[in-house]
Design a protein around this nucleic acid. Structure first.
Lengths: 352, 352
DNA sequence: AGCAAGTTTGAATTCCCATGCAATCAATCG
DNA sequence: CGATTGATTGCATGGGAATTCAAACTTGCT
């Protein structure tokens, strides 16, 4: 295959930005109309085999690729979806983002990523999301009613990922955090734990709130009051500090610590062992939530509830794509039960 | 502010996709030309204060936002960059992706994310990257010379992140893995370790190769031969299996294990402690690489080399943006030394 | 007041592709 | 063989914003 350095346009050697070949260039080279080129590149459009071949040859020669931007303009479909995450979400769950991206990708949809510093600064990002005319949005950050309305007005479907606002009329995929916590508490109580403590996540995290409420509810149901509470930030260190704070509050170690996520549970275990010389689960039981990688490390083997990430991301992707196809679909919430993991970080009764 | 339900276009209540307001709509409403609207939304363009106000008012009324797609078509700038990662990269280093995104974002650039299943299946993804007319690319996956040429031909600058191909004429940001390994080995040898073993990463990982070679080199320099080698996949479990395999090979535990990353080092420690009843670092020293979160957990406290992610991502972003602005800039490589962390997972001499 | 110089503004054009419509062509049938 | 049907193909248009050019308008100064 010789260098096509004769084809009018110089084939810039290196670095020099040259004009990219357009469908007109290909058409001229192939001796057909521009529409023909467009049709050849549109799957399912009518074009003869001969036509197809000529166009493809010409396209190959000049390295033609349809311009997705121009196509988006005319079709009113960018084939991009916005994915909004916060730093927190990603660190706790790096695979969520990759899974979402791969699943969208395998369906011909590209992901435009928006990473919020905090849950708060959504405004600027949303403006961008709207400017880029994404076909839909998956958000793992909270949106205000007003912001939600902006998307609604623009006809852009939104799916919340583990973040369901009050309004009933939204699409959401989430893990049943409350249910998971209730199970954890039930197991702990059944195994005889009585002095409970909780390390919550950040105050403004809806997930943390749901988990804490779920645990508290179940505790109350089982007649357990006086629960020591510490507030954390989902990070390892706040798990350690949380445990220290609880011991201070109680004047002695608790029977059980319910950490709002695995990372804090791990911090908690390290603190109990390294600083307080306690045996986990002999002296104190610790449970977490999420099922992150380190939860399964031999040093921790957390008793926890794991989020079924694969199924949840798949649900989010298909929910969103359905609603892009058919904007009339009614809102839907899909709630997944967590996977119950009876690890070694908590003393549980043996029978299931 | 009353509902503008009189403004001709019905303000679709909910769900119904309506036509988004265009610059023409705003122009008509404000009684000015479309060009005026365009200018008002372009920072630094000439427009009188009065004009500006009228246009902004009208824009607000109809919820106008410039269409980034259309803008991209005419300006030949999408203001999007492609970021290519593989599943592996992201899981080891979730913050890389978020940091890149935030840094681009703060400079008005959006990130189009491409997640490769393996390092291999780049072809399809690259096609998409080119179709979307991104202004530049950061890749944490390997590209073939041919693929690189495609970007070059298209005038799209590429920055490799921790992945530098043989060709000298590429832009790259990377951590000096070899140097880091040499330091680790040096420390271990100085502290008296003699029977060494290595757990490498996947065969096809250039980073793993560089680390392994760096370590081997230094070992040889210091007169140490007969190094037991196990091949891992960067995952926790392969760290465990790696250690088991090494013990099998040697018939006894090694003095030191050099794991190609932290995750495997952690697996290695767990295996040594839990299965072989060894004391780390008393019986065996383990070192890793990367400086991931769990490396600092009290149960491990890895001796490792931490990648300066913040500086590296910043370097990648600014290198890429510079080259988008000025395509004449010569290729550049920026190599960062890792941060040396003398943790408790290895027995080291005390003096520095 | 008169004019040069600078600033705003609008009309027209451009970016690249998809698609409705009409024209053309090939194939089928009576 | 002519007419009908169906598949291809090309023409022309449109999608939304940026930008060039020239016209209109300000401003400052003599």
């Amino acid at each position: 295959m010789a260098q096509p350095e004769n084809s009018g346009r110089p084939s810039a050697g290196s670095g020099r930005a040259q004009r990219r070949a357009t469908s007109y260039d290909v058409a001229r080279l192939a001796g057909v109309s521009q529409s023909a080129v467009s049709r050849v590149f549109k799957p399912g459009a009518s074009a003869s085999a001969a036509m197809r071949r000529r166009v493809m040859d010409a396209a190959e020669q000049v390295g033609y690729r349809p311009n997705a931007i121009a196509r988006g303009l005319i079709t009113q479909r960018s084939n991009m979806v916005g994915v909004i995450i916060s730093k927190l979400v990603n660190l706790n769950y790096p695979e969520v983002l990759v899974e979402l991206t791969q699943r969208f990708s395998s369906r011909g949809i590209r992901v435009l990523l928006f990473a919020l510093e905090t849950e708060g600064d959504t405004a600027a990002a949303l403006d961008q999301v709207l400017q880029y005319r994404v076909d839909g949005v998956v958000t793992a950050a909270m949106l205000s009613g007003e912001q939600l309305k902006m998307f609604d007005d623009a006809g852009i479907p939104v799916v919340f990922y583990n973040r369901a606002p009050g309004e009933p009329s939204v699409n959401a995929v989430r893990c049943d955090h409350a249910e998971g916590e209730r199970w954890l508490v039930g197991e702990l109580v059944q195994a005889g734990h009585r002095r409970f403590s909780i390390i919550t996540g950040p105050e403004d995290s809806p997930v943390s709130t749901e988990r804490a409420l779920g645990a508290m509810d179940k505790l109350r149901e089982l007649g357990i009051e006086n629960v020591a509470v510490a507030t954390g930030d989902y990070g390892y260190h706040s798990g350690r500090e949380g445990f220290a704070s609880i011991v201070r509050q109680l004047g002695e170690p608790p029977d059980a610590v319910i950490a709002a996520n695995d990372m804090m549970a791990i911090g908690c275990i390290d603190e109990a062992r390294a600083v307080h010389g306690l045996n986990v689960p002999g002296d104190v039981s610790v449970v977490g939530f999420d099922g992150v990688g380190p939860a399964a490390y031999a040093a921790y083997l957390l008793t926890t509830v794991s989020q079924p990430v694969a199924r949840m991301t798949e649900a989010a992707v298909s929910m969103l794509l359905e609603r892009i196809e058919d904007s009339e679909l009614p809102p839907e919430k899909r709630v997944f039960s967590g996977i119950r993991i009876r690890g070694g970080s908590a003393r549980l009764t043996v029978d299931r």
